[in-house]
Amino acid sequence: MKAFLGMGLLGSNFVRAMIKQGETVQVWNRTASRAQELEKEGAKAFIYAADAVKGATEIHITLKDDASVDEVLKAAEPGLAPGAIIIDHTTTSKEGAIARTRDWKEKGFTYQHAPVFMGPINALESTGYMLISGDEAIITALTPALSKLTGTLINFGEEVGKAAAMKLAGNAFLVCLTVSLKDTLTLSKSLDISLDELLKLFSMWNPGTLISGRLKRMAAPDQSKPSWELNMARKDTQLFLDATQQAGNELVLVPVIAALMDKFINDGFGSHDWTVIGK
């Protein structure tokens, strides 16, 4: 028997996927009606977290943050069966994941952090990516069950908290990417470029293929042999700013990048590869 605490968009679809796979699932949510809605699909809902986890060998959690995870687990603790395994899919701090792994082990339970790069559809269809790290024996034991819930289970080794750190790094990229795309759309609008034209460009030229090479170049000890000089990149950046200003629009991220470029140029790096600003 399994329990799932947290019936948001992600958690509720995880439960639906588990039920389709033949699992018996007990569920709880702070707003009880969200858990109760899943009873018509085969789950059993409970008002109290401690009751939801009774008899369960695996307790999955998808909540908001460190504080909510700690609060809900404290409430559930009286109902935990001896040796129960807690699997937390919440995006949390690295420190929080480390502390919970240690603290629950001292109480006689296994806490395994397994954050995800999955949306609600991924959870329902068991696709996307799930991250994991820590005790290899525990990971080996959990791999068959967790693999059924995701398209790809990525093991980052024995360091407790590494999966939490990797999830935060990935989310940082997604946040910055979204703001970058906002500026790209604003510039396109300023230059009378339609969305269809922009999509045509990116369908033929995929900048995503540049990420690994760009990271390696940024991490290299020497950027003095440029493929694109910082001075030239700064010139183009000014063209972005000028075009949007003339159209009465405003960029968000590009002005910050321009200021950073100016700092490095003033420090004598204008003839270096522009990725020097990543130092």
Results as ranks from 00 to 15, higher is better:
3 A>N: 02
6 G>R: 02
8 G>I: 07
13 N>E: 15
17 A>W: 00
21 Q>G: 13
28 W>D: 02
29 N>K: 03
32 A>G: 00
32 A>V: 15
34 R>K: 14
39 E>W: 07
45 A>P: 01
45 A>T: 05
52 A>L: 03
55 G>F: 02
60 H>K: 07
64 K>A: 13
65 D>F: 12
72 V>C: 04
79 G>A: 03
79 G>P: 01
89 H>Y: 14
95 E>I: 08
97 A>W: 03
99 A>Q: 11
108 G>T: 11
109 F>G: 04
111 Y>G: 06
117 F>C: 06
117 F>W: 12
119 G>N: 02
121 I>A: 15
122 N>D: 14
122 N>G: 07
122 N>I: 12
123 A>R: 02
126 S>M: 14
127 T>P: 05
128 G>C: 08
130 M>A: 08
135 D>W: 14
141 A>C: 07
148 K>Q: 12
148 K>E: 14
148 K>N: 13
153 L>S: 11
156 F>P: 04
156 F>Y: 13
160 V>H: 08
168 L>T: 10
170 G>R: 06
174 L>C: 10
175 V>K: 11
177 L>Y: 15
178 T>M: 12
182 K>F: 11
183 D>R: 04
187 L>H: 01
189 K>S: 12
199 L>T: 15
202 F>S: 08
204 M>G: 13
211 I>E: 13
214 R>D: 11
222 D>Q: 09
226 P>Q: 07
226 P>M: 08
227 S>R: 10
230 L>C: 01
232 M>E: 06
234 R>Y: 06
236 D>R: 08
242 D>Y: 04
244 T>P: 02
246 Q>Y: 08
247 A>E: 14
250 E>I: 00
255 P>Q: 02
257 I>S: 07
261 M>I: 02
262 D>G: 06
265 I>W: 01
266 N>D: 15
268 G>Y: 06
269 F>K: 01
270 G>P: 01
273 D>Q: 10
273 D>E: 05
